[in-house]
Design a binder for these strands. Sequence first.
DNA 1: TATTTTACTTATCAATTGATAACATAAAGT
DNA 2: ACTTTATGTTATCAATTGATAAGTAAAATA
Lengths: 142, 142
Amino acid sequence: MDKNQFFQIVMNFIGNVHASTHFLTKDARSNKITPQQHSILEYVFFSKAVTTSQVADCLNISLPNASRELKKLFKLDLIVKESDAKDRRKTTISLSEPGQNLMLRTFERIQKDFWKQAGELSEDEMKSIISSMVVLDKKVFF
Amino acid sequence: MDKNQFFQIVMNFIGNVHASTHFLTKDARSNKITPQQHSILEYVFFSKAVTTSQVADCLNISLPNASRELKKLFKLDLIVKESDAKDRRKTTISLSEPGQNLMLRTFERIQKDFWKQAGELSEDEMKSIISSMVVLDKKVFF
DNA sequence: TATTTTACTTATCAATTGATAACATAAAGT
DNA sequence: ACTTTATGTTATCAATTGATAAGTAAAATA
């Protein structure tokens, strides 16, 4: 198979994922936080505990700007900061109780639209979808 | 299978795709255009011919702002505007020759990093990846 | 122990993006 | 023909995000 062609198919798939995500999340975001702040909360949500640098690296934000946004989220009481016991330069970020709740509520709203869009999926379909995602996670998106 | 759990897995997958895309595209963008303008060009690239409203809807930009960005891209000679013969309110957008070339060059650069990241994929692996994407496109991202 | 590196913060300015009002024109409906 | 709706443009201001310089403190290293 032509590598070039394969690449185009992957890029097209990525485009579909982005468009679909955008559609799902556009109205779900809390109006107290910005899109970028939402991304940060989402990242922390899935990662459980991360440092400021990790947030910056993984979301491609400069460290100063990541620091600024995390400070805002802290002031909104959505995250918890804890200085690492072993290396006190590091700050460990995790969601606060309200932050956790905010994200869960947001996901609930997104989930409704998701099932409306995805319709009813059978047990087998869900399994097949998950194994597809596992393949892609392992080989392409990591 | 628990619907809630399934949804979380999908959201996590979406996060991976976004992170991976961000990583791939962060340095590839031409420095003459903004991130949003890049998204617009990418969308037009994959869609061939679209109207201003379609760009606005699909990328979740307000119509005035979509119009503004398209105007800038037009002035940069990256897109072509053509008024629809049947409905002269509509403007059909497509990539100009330079726009097409810009995107192809950008994709080339991204592709290099992509293969560096994805490594060598066998014929079978590529086929399996594509069929995975087809499943996801059909059932989840559309 | 002195120096360098790492992790992070604060402050500031520039660039990008979002939101909204006012407008023009074409098409569709009555 | 008259009104309404759809498509798009222009202009303007606010909000978000990006980039960079300068600084602090802890850890690693020489």
